[in-house]
């Protein structure tokens, strides 16, 4: 089981991670914003397979992936 950690202050809410996730467990929040005012990405389901596609494609290096 893997776990995605998103740094909300670094995320710019571009949505690339959401589009590349093969099991669609990420989404851009429509409630939570960071200090810069961006709606940030968040994990909605705890089913991560640890492929790291989101982390590889994140332009701002906001995503880390851990294996439990």
């Amino acid at each position: 089981m893997a776990r995605i950690i998103i740094d909300p202050e670094v995320c710019k809410g571009c949505g690339i991670c959401v589009s590349v996730c093969p099991i669609k467990i990420l989404k851009i929040s429509n409630i939570v914003t960071n200090k810069a005012g961006y709606f940030v990405a968040e994990v909605v389901e705890d089913k991560c397979i640890g492929c790291c596609s989101c982390a590889i494609m994140c332009p701002d290096s906001a995503i880390s992936v851990l294996k439990q």
């Binding site: 640890g50 590889i56 701002d60 290096s61 880390s64 992936v65 851990l66 294996k67 439990q68």
Partner: peptide
């Protein structure tokens, strides 16, 4: 806990412009 992906040490913590 194993780290599968994390930010490289060769990048600083400065937010990208």
């Amino acid at each position: 806990m194993e780290i599968l992906y994390k930010k490289s040490r060769m990048l600083t913590d400065t937010p990208l412009s």
